[in-house]
């Protein structure tokens, strides 16, 4: 009965009418239950005994084969398990046997031909990741450089101002030239930074996986590229 008349605003009279139409006497035990307030039982009672299963010789053979298969897969490298990292350094007797079985298993053993798989699945290859890391590190390195530029420049300007007040007329021409150069350099650096940023944005727009790429940083390349950049420092 459940499900019939769902979503219709029929009152009790409507229900009774339907019951009458469908041949159920009002008030009898067959009238539909108004509402069920609890979920059906987890193990509903078995009303009729099911037919016993027939298993011939064929069935037994099939079961044996199935057991074989499951057993085989369990022992094969394709059965991937979590390697339990033990927090304590207690030597256990059972360790000797566990390590022996675990160390034999690597997925690489079952893979026949890597050329049939995307390269990213290979253990030691991660071409895309390295590329992204480069971009990320340049951006990170640029930002401190820029702030350094500004402070340097301010200091320099201050110095010049002091010098300039001493001998204004003589050096004016030179100073403006130098300032121009400075400006030029700075502009270049700025536009460089902008370009890099733009490129980065493009990269990220593709698949929006920026977070993940950064998130899975195994730390191998740490200080590789950045070191160089930092040591270079700003050039004037």
């Amino acid at each position: 009965m459940a499900g019939r008349g769902r979503g219709r605003g029929g009152g009790p009279s409507f229900n009774r009418e339907i019951s009458e139409r469908m041949g159920i006497a009002p008030g009898s035990s067959e009238t539909p239950v108004e509402s069920v307030l609890e979920p059906p039982p987890l193990f509903p009672p078995l009303e009729s005994r099911p037919v016993p299963l027939e298993l011939g010789v064929e069935g037994e053979y099939l079961l044996a084969l199935k057991r074989d298969f499951v057993g085989y897969f369990h022992d094969s490298p394709s059965f991937i398990q979590n390697v339990v990292v033990k927090s304590d350094n207690i030597q256990r007797y059972s360790d000797r046997y566990q390590n022996a079985t675990l160390s034999l298993k690597t997925v690489a053993d079952i893979v026949r031909d890597w050329s049939h798989f995307p390269t990213e699945l290979r253990d030691n290859v991660k071409p895309q990741k390295i590329k992204r890391k480069l971009k990320g590190s340049t951006r990170r390195a640029k930002i401190p450089k820029k702030t350094e530029d500004i402070t340097n420049r301010l200091e320099e300007l201050e110095k010049r101002e002091e010098e300039g007040s001493d001998a204004e007329g003589e050096t004016e021409g030179k100073e403006t030239e130098g300032a121009k150069d400075e400006n030029k350099e700075n502009k270049d650096a700025d536009s460089d930074a902008e370009e890099v940023e733009e490129e980065d944005v493009d990269e990220e727009m593709d698949d929006g996986t920026d977070y993940i790429n950064n998130y899975f940083d195994n730390g191998e390349e740490y200080l590789d590229e950045e070191d160089d950049n930092l040591e270079d420092g700003p050039v004037y």
């Binding site: 991937i80 990213e120 699945l121 290979r122």
Partner: peptide, 8 residues
Amino acid sequence: KQSLCVLL
């Protein structure tokens, strides 16, 4: 990666 290798 390993799981995907197995599935493939």
